[in-house]
Structures are given as structure tokens and as C-alpha cells.
Nucleic acid binder design. Structure first.
Lengths: 239, 239
DNA sequence: TAGTGGTCTAGACCACGGG
DNA sequence: CCGTGGTCTAGACCACTAC
């Protein structure tokens, strides 16, 4: 790209190397941007740029107004498997937690009607939850359920696995699911929950689940901190 | 997030709305950053920020030192299906092109040995290709083949589908594959091929393919412009 | 309240793209 | 060659976090 290789560019990769070596304990805090800019004798914006490249390399991450931290290992996640989040996380020797943020009952928006193939004026339940790995918020997930299939579900304990609840109380076995994965800018509420600055990149997964009768029973919007997850799919594991 | 809602923030979303409405023809060029900063009477950095948010919303994209353009529709892509790129693209009424960038024969690096479960000193073929949709570079793909399974393959026409070549000339049917998806910073060569600024975000897919005898025959590194693709997987389509 | 990152300015020089 | 985005400076104020 460059032949003269600007002085600052070098500092950038120097920073990269030093930081990566010096502090390897996941979650430990880096010096502040101001401190680093003095240390390296460059402007704060240059430091910010350098930190952001390290971030997109997955070495560090940023928490809005809290600082920069050394990255944790990514959670390996297969969206085709319907394994409970807590079990998945525990199997990878991490600590899981789920917090119910909001629960509501409302009429489906036009957008949702399209995604869920709903008739007009269909009532849906919306369950918004935040999920933590090692006490760090990494996933905001919003489930939209066709209310006719799930009477009284809002009275259940929603911090557990919904998939399991579907089975146990309603006899729905998930059979088919379809999902889209794409990076996008975090909407305001997502950014807030995940401690991201507004507009930061997240990994969005939209999943649509069908029961054995091929009825579309629920639809799920997942917003992952992109540095926290690795999507892995193995065609062998599909039965 | 903000209560006083800074004047500039408003300009940002204004820009958003205006641009999104005004110029909708995919691929058409936006005014330059300098022009926009005069039009909106803000500094160039502010304009850049606004453009970058629009970019992560998928409305526009940037070509390194060429300018900003209105986004094209995303290619819907299922990494589980081994459909030829050209056919996939044509089915979505777009124009496909493949350009072979580099072909080489070398000893596997330690990293690659791990991924491909190779013994030491194994020779591999590396095929690097760039793929275009509507003449825009959107994907850089690097195939690493275990050379013992593919004698003389480097003499074939490599701009066609490799999957098909595997079948036709070597009798290998793909049976199982496993892949990882994750956003990351574009390495220098990828950025260059895709007309991205160095370090920009791309969607990386690492795929490992096995033949019917469960031999690991090749491994593929795909780097997609994240604005050009939507990963879609339907468990029903798996046979 | 002190310290953090988020945002913004008004300049500047550079490398690269394309005529 | 000129126009583009890429990068950088040396400040500044703000909103928010954490204590």
C-alpha cells in the first residue's frame, strides 16, 4: 500500500505488537487513550485508529466510555443446533447468565408480518433478553412468538431456555429453521445493552423456526458483539 | 443516548435520509467528502463519520480513493450448498466474473497444517481468485488443496468452478463440510483486491471440505465485502 | 467529581485513481 | 495532472461511568 511507510503507521503496528504481548489476560484494561497518546507521542485520534484496528483483528474490544480491554476467546456457536445457551457456554468452560429486559404483547408490525408470514392484526409476544458470558453482555436477543401458539407463556420463567419451554409446555419440537447472518450497525437499544457506542458493528442473526407441522412458531433476532462469537457450522452434525 | 441531541447528530441523520432518498440507483456515485462537508457546513471528519454509519447500515459503500457509492442488493449465499458461484449469481439476476490472481505450489505453513490436519512437509496448491458481481470485486477466495489428491490440477482452467473440476477430473464428491464465519479486518492483499482501505471490515468464511471417504481434500478462505453478501442457511435444504 | 471514551473542528500532507 | 479518500494534528466540549 505504502512505500515510504509513514512514521505513524509504524507506531500503529508497534502498538499492536506491544499490547498483544504485554497484557494477555482477557478482560484486563488497557491504559486510557490519552495516556497512550502521550506514551507514543501521537494524537489521540491516531491512537484511536490503532486501537480500532486491533479491535477488528479481534485482539481487544471497547466498552462505551469504560475503556479498552483485552479480548476474550470467542464462543463457538452453531445456529443450526438448538442447544440451550447456558449449556453451550458451560461446555466451553465459560459462565452464562440471562437477563430478561422486556416482555410485551403487541400487534405485529408490517415488517414482522412479512418475516413471519402473518395475517394482519396478528398479536405477537415479544421477549427481549440480554445474555452474558463471564458477566460481559455479548448478545441481545429478541424473540417474537405467534401468540396463538403460546397461550400464557408470558407468565412462565423466561430467563430459561425458550426452546425447552416450547417443548415442555406446548409440545412443539423444532424441526426446520432458517437463518440469515450479516454484520450491521447496532441499533440504539442494542448498543446500550451491549455497552457499545451507538452505530458500532454487530453480527445480526435472524432466525425463523418451524415446528414439525411446518408452522412458523417463532422468529428470533440475535445481535452479537462481533468479537464475542464465531459461527461454526458442520454439515456432519446435522441429522 | 443523548438528551440535547447535538446539532451535528441531526445533520448526520439528515444526511442519511437525504442520501438514501435522493440517489437510489445502485452504484451511482455520491458527491465527494469535501463537497458534502461544504454543503452541510461541517468538517470533513464529521461527514466521514456520517458516511461510515450509512455504510454499516448497508446503504452505501466506499471504494478506496474512488469515492462513495449507493449500495447494491446483497447476494444471498448459502455456504452449505456447493452451488457454482456463477450459477448462484446468475440465478439472482446478477453478472458474475472470476479472475485467477495467483497460483502456487508450496509447503504448508504451520497454521495451515493445523487447519488441514496435515503432516509436516506436505505440499499444497494455493489458488487465489477474485470474484466479481456486476464488475465489482466482492470476494477474494483462496483454495488450499492437498496436492496428493490433485495431480496436475494447476494445468486446468482454474477460473471455472473448482467443485466441478474435483468431480469431473478426480471423482471427488463433496460430502461433508464445516465452516466458520466471522467478521475481521481485511489483510492487505484482500483489501487491495476488493478496493477496500486497509484494515476495513470483511466477512471471513473458512471452509473445510471432505470427500465421501472422509478425507480432507481442500480448505477454502473466503473474504467477502460485508456489504455485498447475506449468509442464508435453511435446514430444510440439507439432504 | 474525576476520568473515560464520543464527538467535533479547521486545518494539513500523503498516496492513489483516473483522465 | 487534478480530485479522491486516507491519515494525522492539537486542540475542544460533551455524556457517561465509576467512585
Amino acid at each position: 500500500m505504502q512505500d515510504k511507510a509513514s512514521r505513524i503507521r509504524k507506531i500503529r503496528s508497534q502498538l499492536r505488537g506491544q499490547l498483544a504481548q504485554e497484557v494477555f489476560k482477557p478482560g484486563s484494561k488497557l491504559p486510557s487513550e490519552r495516556t497512550l497518546s502521550e506514551l507514543f507521542n501521537v494524537s489521540r485520534m491516531t491512537i484511536k485508529d490503532a486501537l480500532e484496528s486491533l479491535q477488528s483483528e479481534g485482539l481487544i474490544y471497547c466498552e462505551d466510555r469504560r475503556g479498552w480491554f483485552v479480548a476474550h476467546p470467542r464462543l463457538i456457536y452453531n445456529p443450526l443446533s438448538r442447544m440451550h445457551f447456558h449449556r453451550l457456554v458451560n461446555e466451553q468452560r465459560r459462565k452464562a447468565r440471562t437477563q430478561v429486559l422486556d416482555v410485551s404483547s403487541e400487534l405485529a408490525s408490517p415488517d414482522l408480518m412479512r418475516v413471519m408470514e402473518l395475517a394482519e392484526l396478528t398479536r405477537i409476544y415479544r421477549i427481549q433478553r440480554c445474555r452474558f458470558i463471564d458477566d460481559r453482555p455479548v448478545l441481545l436477543v429478541e424473540n417474537c412468538l405467534n401468540s396463538q401458539y403460546f397461550p400464557d407463556i408470558l407468565n412462565e420463567d423466561l430467563s430459561q431456555s425458550l426452546t425447552e419451554l416450547y417443548q415442555r409446555h406446548y409440545g412443539y419440537e423444532n424441526s426446520r429453521s432458517r437463518f440469515d447472518v450479516q454484520p450491521c450497525a447496532a441499533p440504539e437499544n442494542v448498543a446500550q445493552a451491549l455497552h457499545l457506542a451507538s452505530g458500532q458493528m454487530v453480527l445480526k442473526i435472524i432466525r425463523v423456526n418451524y415446528n414439525r407441522a411446518n408452522q412458523l412458531i417463532d422468529c428470533e433476532f440475535e445481535y452479537w458483539r462481533h468479537d464475542a462469537v464465531c459461527i461454526r457450522i458442520d454439515s456432519q452434525s446435522i441429522d
